[in-house]
Amino acid sequence: MAGAITVCRKELADHLGSKRYIVLFALILVLSTLSAYQGAEYIKDNPQAGFIAVFSGARFGFSFTSLMVFFGPIIGLSLGFDAINKERTSGSLSMLLSQPIYRDSVINGKFLAGTAALSLLTVTTIGIMSGVAMSILGFGPTLDDASRIILFTLLTILYLAFWLALGLLYSTVTKKTSTSILMSVATWLFFSIVIAIIAALVANLLVPITMPRDTSGGNIAKILRSPEFRELLRRRFSIQMNIQRVSPAYLYNEAGASILGISGGRLGFIGPGGGRPFKSLELIEGLTASWPQITAIAAGLVICFVASYVLFLRLEIRPGG
């Protein structure tokens, strides 16, 4: 354990000083502060919205959650994708493992350090957002709001740690960082863009939109308002949603909405789907509603970490490859 703490301290210092981390941190901080500012302005106009609206992005649809949906994978993966293979090729790993530590201290320490760096990023960002909002609004969160914010912070850390664990897995299974960075980018693109396209395609195949031929008399608007057509759209939407649930980002989005007490669909990155910020779910209800998603993300994290742990312990350590 002592070994893991030493490794963790060194890795954390590396992260905090790395350009990669600093750039991503700054980016998230600037965008989040901006969204908090907008959120606070919205709350000023709509006092019934409540403090929580700071995080839900209000009418701009540009929220902390949507930022994390989009940037979360890249933040987590970027802290993990070269954790093992870089040291393997450089030869520092064989030097490290010649020290009196257990081999798992290395991977535990690296995972801990990554999680700590991600927690710092999350807590700082959410803290600053709350501070900005409070100074604009002149009032703070209620106890209920505060509990939601804390739970939401934990959810975000869990979600980012999942991506970190996936990156760690990539760095364990590949020998070259150029391969693992490629895998990371592919993963990011897949979950943030490709999966939505696939979902739409599948929905289109399964439930094609058929326009009745004999619309000579009736107008389009009437058809669009018809119950059959609405049912069609509902089915398509549910297919798309279920496919997108493969994506941890989507799960995070859903869980986040439930915890923050915002109902009403997904919070898109940008666009009108930004979610009406009315509190519909009580705290406990929200937590219960988000439980399946939270469990799924946690399971994904555990699977990725255990896989990289086991692989790392069996790794043939030879300098240079």
Binding site: G3, T6, V7, R9, K10, D14, G17, E87, T89, S90, G91, S92, L93, S94, M95, L96, S98, Q99, P100, I101, P319, G320
Partner: peptide
């Protein structure tokens, strides 16, 4: 070891210090 490597971003002293801590 054959082909031993070091932490290139760290100074000689920092490298040694890390190994010292691990011991």
């Amino acid at each position: 070891p054959e082909g031993a490597g070091y932490y290139e971003d760290l100074t000689a002293r920092q490298n040694l210090d890390y190994i010292g801590q691990l011991n």
